[in-house]
Design a protein around this nucleic acid. Sequence first.
DNA 1: GCTAATTTGTTCGTATGTATA
DNA 2: TTATACATACGAACAAATTAG
Lengths: 238, 238
Amino acid sequence: MSNSKYMEIYEYIKKNIKNENYLPGEKIPSENQLKDFFSVSRNTVRKAIELLASDGYLSSIQGKGVFVMKKIPVTFLLSGNQSFKESSAKNRLRYSTSVPVLEAVVVDEKLSEITHFPVGELVYHLVRVREINGEKIILDENYFLKDILKGLTPEIACDSIYEFLEEKKGVKINGAQKIISVEKATELDKEYLDLNKDNVVVIVKNFAYLENGLLFEYTESHHRSDKFVFTSYAKREK
Amino acid sequence: MSNSKYMEIYEYIKKNIKNENYLPGEKIPSENQLKDFFSVSRNTVRKAIELLASDGYLSSIQGKGVFVMKKIPVTFLLSGNQSFKESSAKNRLRYSTSVPVLEAVVVDEKLSEITHFPVGELVYHLVRVREINGEKIILDENYFLKDILKGLTPEIACDSIYEFLEEKKGVKINGAQKIISVEKATELDKEYLDLNKDNVVVIVKNFAYLENGLLFEYTESHHRSDKFVFTSYAKREK
DNA sequence: GCTAATTTGTTCGTATGTATA
DNA sequence: TTATACATACGAACAAATTAG
């Protein structure tokens, strides 16, 4: 699973937290104890702890020890950079996707302002409707850099584009900037989504970047407001 | 400013990114070049780079180099773990706060389910109304652990509780878990907020923890939906 | 296409500083 | 005061990926 020593220790500690072997608010073994237990250097133990701290699982206090953070369980977890498929699978929902639009377009002035792609760039434009438990809940409007997504088919678009990119094409993704806001439902929303009396939708704008800093995706997700949940753990900047 | 070497290097690189001395999509000097320039060990340079990478500024690629990530500027930034005062100051808005409710209460069964504080715990209950440019936009309902906030006055509540905690009382905050959703406006919302025809509000639930994992704050922020913006950078988990 | 140089990734051992108990 | 625990820093070595020649 994990080819590096620090990832082994990372998994070990994480498992012990999940098992409630290490309890929230309590200390885990000291760095020196872990170093002896795994027969590694203290640096290697520290790297694992730093990783878990940045994930919000641990918190180191100088002179005291390393504490397990408490976490409130969230039943509906739709957080971070997970794609639709991954999050649905976790929550065991019946989902399906339809793709009413799949076309290649050239970015013009107007589209460039929205997507931040350079004018003249070739992109795929997709509209995807996400159905959960029989209701049309999410309308995704995607723009992907075309040459990165070469070989895209409607079948793949229905499945998971991220899976296709990462596993089939070896594309490496750094992360994405998300902007969440609430706006009036557009005609497109009314056409494709099962809106209740609701006249507003939650809009998640998603700018996704490769490892080298290249913007390769702009997506606008329109969520039915009553079904929208977003969670994140934000560390306090010091 | 920064008492450690790696923080000096961190600030130096960050400054060069802000100055557009290091350009998005381009490489910064190699670790060995930086190590020689600062006369430090390579580990120290790497620590600075790792910090900036976790902030979403940089991305390291083995064999290639360290790249500057692109960022889309967001004019209204109300993100991460910033308090109302901090974000208002950044965006140069006229803001004011009123505190219609400030009371000490004992957590009962019902309140415990919402806040996740243990039953019987003593907490401060505050209601704060945030006015931006003359409009009542945000209704905050706060619950703070009482013994951590000893000496709270209405004046401090109007100002910044986080500033009071961190600077005056030396309390160290690890971070907070946020859950964002959209719900129908309550009677309290209608009473205190300047709602338009809007009958929905954006609710941000905020569970904040100390360094040792102790939950010390539960806050439910009710935002007027047309004024709500949330941004975050989410790194792709590998 | 192959080799060598460059660049980041992992790991070790050691030393010293600072905060806490 | 002393011992413990985390924080910072150095120097070194080898691995793995990429690039240059």
